[in-house]
Design a protein around this nucleic acid. Structure first.
Length: 446
RNA sequence: UCCGCGAUAGCUCAAUGGUAGAGCAUGCGGCUGUUAACCGCAGGGUUGUAGGUUCGAGUCCUACUCGCGGAGCCA
């Protein structure tokens, strides 16, 4: 990848700016880099400055005999995270982790000498780092996670955009609970009463699908549940495709192609990042369609065979999901859940009205549910009955019911949780590292 | 809301109920190839808060606060 070694000039020296990731193109030439001091080592008359610029880290070697006295003196004033620019000659060196070093000729500008930096090269606890998330983002590990996250989001957009989907954004402020189940964040909304932060864009995506055929919405989602686990955030990102005339099987096919596309894109473009994260990619290589499909009934059989206490009719818990996913070498799709544990809008299976035409995709290695989807109930009268059963106010859903009054068709869709997907692909032990500024029940800063 | 674990130097952690310690970071000094560099010296503490037991509490007891993990709920 090229990082714009283009016409951007330093106002200080009039010399083109070069990025560390592009150094391989400049071996033997003089370049000027701009960045921050990542770490420093010294040995008498030689200084090793580790410079990071967002694209990588390079060791800059300052030899006392080779630079003016004041340049050498400047190196002793630079503290960790001080910002400066450095000029020198690029040299390939097998000892360097990145393969290249810079033989420094000048330090033309020191932007700022940083105050004592709290995050040292040694280990820190999670609370300490979380309090300084805005600085923690500068570390190599966090760079890798954020780059993978970026690549995943790009893959999501490329996948749908390349298949004729239209992005139809759903609102974040909504008048009522979408599904009536979760606890939502509430706020005053002028003279119109209460408003809630959305827990899902799905109902609006259905309206989009009836208008445009194939749509997806992609935005932040909010849950006020007091969930306190490594898989939960109060604010997270979800992408929700919705397709008119798709049944449950079409939905599962879309989901497996989608997951394959995301994972293979990351494997292809983020090998360096996954290496920094020490991620074993063997299982990720397996993520290709077809993904195994089992019914909820078969999932219950697996649990019983593995000695897991479980009663038909319950939803799968975190441990149950892990036990099931351990039986497979790639994500597994579990379909046809008991209708009673699922949302009101899911269509029941005509073959067995006790189950809903729903599907959850469970990621391997205990990362849990990354996709939840279903075929939607498209019959007006059935939907009206479901609203009553769930004690939901019909008037709040009139617009949604209109979708069944004016050209109702079978349709289906699903939602993918971005943070869980990032956590799974990166092999992280907590979703709080998958988003730049995580929001959890006991943390809203920084 | 429930269950479990934890809180000691800026950070990560030690310390049988008997004088509060180390590594890193910081400051000073040394070293021309260091890779979380190394070597020497120095500064740095109301042991989360409030009570209690004891001749004596970082250590034992009670309550509280905050955090972490899990359950429930969910992506």
């Amino acid at each position: 990848m090229l990082y714009f070694t283009d016409g951007i000039y330093s106002s200080v020296t009039g010399m083109a700016r070069t990025y560390i990731a592009d150094l391989h193109q400049h071996v033997g030439k003089e370049v000027q880099l701009h960045g921050w001091l990542y770490n420093k080592r010294s040995s008498g008359k030689i200084r090793f400055l580790l410079l990071r610029d967002g694209t990588g880290v390079v060791q800059c070697v300052v030899v006392k005999a080779n630079v003016p006295e004041q340049v050498f003196a400047v190196t002793d004033t630079l503290t960790q995270e001080s910002a400066f620019s450095v000029r020198g000659t690029v040299r390939a060196d097998s000892r360097a982790p990145g393969g290249f070093e810079l033989d420094v000729t000048d330090i033309p500008k020191v932007y700022q000498v940083a105050a004592e930096y709290p995050i040292t090269p040694k280990e820190h606890g999670v609370e300490f780092l979380a309090d300084r998330r805005h600085l923690w983002l500068r570390s190599a590990r966090q760079h890798a996670v954020l780059r993978v996250r970026h690549r995943i989001i790009k893959a999501i957009r490329d996948f749908f955009d390349g298949r004729g989907f239209t992005l139809v954004d759903s609102p974040i402020l909504t008048p009522a609970a979408c599904e009536g189940t979760s606890t939502l964040f509430e706020t005053d909304y002028f003279d119109l009463g209460k408003a809630f932060l959305t827990q899902s864009g799905q109902l609006y995506a259905e309206a989009g699908a009836m208008a445009m055929g194939k749509v997806y919405c992609f935005g932040p989602t909010f849950r006020a549940e007091k969930s306190k686990t490594r898989r939960h955030l109060t604010e997270f990102w979800m992408v929700e495709p919705e397709v008119a005339f798709n049944d449950l099987n079409d939905d599962m096919e879309l989901a497996e192609e989608f997951l394959e596309y995301i994972v293979q894109s990351v494997l292809k473009d983020c090998a360096g990042e996954l290496s920094v994260l020490e991620r074993n990619t063997a299982l990720l290589q397996n993520v290709k369609k077809p993904l195994p499909r089992i019914s909820y009934d078969e999932a219950v059989e697996i649990l019983h065979r593995k000695g897991q206490p479980f009663e038909w009719g319950n939803d799968l818990g975190g441990t149950d999901e892990t036990v099931i996913s351990e039986q497979f070498d790639r994500p597994v799709m579990v379909h046809r859940y008991p209708a009673e544990v699922k949302a009101f809008y899911m269509k029941r299976d005509p073959q067995n009205p006790k189950v809903a035409l729903a599907v959850d995709v469970l990621a391997p290695e205990g990362y849990g549910e990354i996709i939840g989807g279903s075929q939607r109930e498209d019959d007006l009268d059935v939907l009206l009955a479901r609203l009553k059963e769930h004690n939901l106010p019909q008037e709040a859903f009139e617009w949604y019911l209109d979708l069944r009054r004016f050209g109702s068709v079978p349709h289906s869709g699903f939602g993918l949780g971005v943070e869980r997907t990032v956590g799974w692909i990166c092999g992280l032990d907590h979703v709080r590292e998958t988003i730049p500024f995580p929001r959890m029940i006991y943390r809203i800063t920084p």
